[in-house]
Nucleic acid binder design. Sequence first.
DNA 1: CAATATTTTCAGTAATTATTGAAATATATG
DNA 2: CATATATTTCAATAATTACTGAAAATATTG
Lengths: 151, 151
Amino acid sequence: MDEARLKYLEEFGLMFGQFGLPRMLGRVLGVLMISDPPERSAEELAEELAASRGSISQTTRSLIQMGLVQRRSKPGERRDYFRVKPGAWHEIMRREMEALGAFRKTAERGLELLGSEDPDARRSLEEMRDFYVYWEREMPAVLERWEKERG
Amino acid sequence: MDEARLKYLEEFGLMFGQFGLPRMLGRVLGVLMISDPPERSAEELAEELAASRGSISQTTRSLIQMGLVQRRSKPGERRDYFRVKPGAWHEIMRREMEALGAFRKTAERGLELLGSEDPDARRSLEEMRDFYVYWEREMPAVLERWEKERG
DNA sequence: CAATATTTTCAGTAATTATTGAAATATATG
DNA sequence: CATATATTTCAATAATTACTGAAAATATTG
């Protein structure tokens, strides 16, 4: 792998890092995104990223669990191959949107906690709740439209 | 502060942690969200969260920088007070949406890197780029509608 | 401008999280 | 079913990130 590509993978890793996810997750997804052919074995991933087998195993498992990567096996071959799952980025977004519900619920729990305290004290939590209620209502349509146009 | 509230703040902290942000950020924002009156001095924050002054200073700075919290001073008082900025959650979302541009650019950079390689190899990056182009186009309208209805 | 109160900075430390590598487990082949 | 190959698990370690606390800087009062 040439230097430009390694640098690109590091960028991919950092992008995921900013997100609070392990860099290795981004690096592995990055390799798969630029692979030609578009699939790689665990061994190839380990070699290209100078990472341990264990780390690749853990990372591919996470990526599969997150719905971003597919594992494939071929008849007559022992090793498995990994490839980016079509719709991976949509899936990332879909999961983020699911997380909105957690924010709304946290706001609601806070309002219960405050009870009938001074309305001033409740205002921030009410705004938070209303905001996430709004987004939970709006997001599905945007996601669905993408799926209809492209999925 | 009673136990139920401390537990709630810890929850707030964990919610931010999932996001890849320091828990302390969530805890401090949490205190301010449930404060009555809705503002607190650095000293009060440090005491309520059993955290160091330095940590509170760093955290309030971050929260202000992120556009989530306001610093206020009062005439005749030396200490500053902090309160949740109205529209804080909208601001969080707005920043996330800005980050979409970085994803699109990363995809574009990858496509440059691949050049005219096998279309199969380019497919994942093209899908990534198209996806983020779509979201960059769609999100602003949703954000603006909230502002119009509520801001 | 001296005295006091408050905030910030930052080096050191603590806590957390990511990664390795070797052993254990699983899977495919002849 | 023995052998070879591939993958997973997990304890140990490395790397990173968060937090403290004391010293320095800043701001306010009389």
